[in-house]
Amino acid sequence: MEGSRVSDETIAEPKRRDILFIATGAMAAVAAGAAVWPLLEQMNPDASTLALASTEVDLSAIVPGQIVTVKWRGKPVFVRHRTALEIAAAENTPLTDLPDPETDAKRVKKPEWLVVIGVCTHLGCIPLGHEGDFDGWFCPCHGSTYDTSGRIRSGPAPSNLEVPAYAFLTDTKIKIG
């Protein structure tokens, strides 16, 4: 293959050196990515934040019509003991009236008890209970209103108040998280 030495220099065929350059460059890119990753990932919730325990709530002291706020994962959770009137209002609302349609039955485990994360889905403010046109919640920041099922009814918020994972431990005690 003695004639091929001349053509090697004139025709753009990959040489061993090109392969080395590309491989080195690729490894350098991987190394740069691996070095940057911890710098970015350190900003995500740390182990102590993730380990925040679940919260138990005793329901026996909450009278009908009352809303109790408990703290879970640094956020408020509303536990609302709904009156018969409020339950009826939530259940009888046609889905067509809802910007984020969801039946009341899907949002509660027992009709008297509504458990929602008390953070407005717009920009994170805490809505005020028993206020607004639908007697659910009203957000003072940008005017979103929620109904007695915590569903968005008007204003800039895009979705219903979130229902956290929770379970009834007994008839009068729930565990959130």
Binding site: M43, N44, P45, D46, T49, R73, G74, G124
Partner: peptide, 13 residues
Amino acid sequence: TTWLLGGYSVDNP
């Protein structure tokens, strides 16, 4: 948002 906050709400991080 979680990444910016370092948690699920504004806190010490």
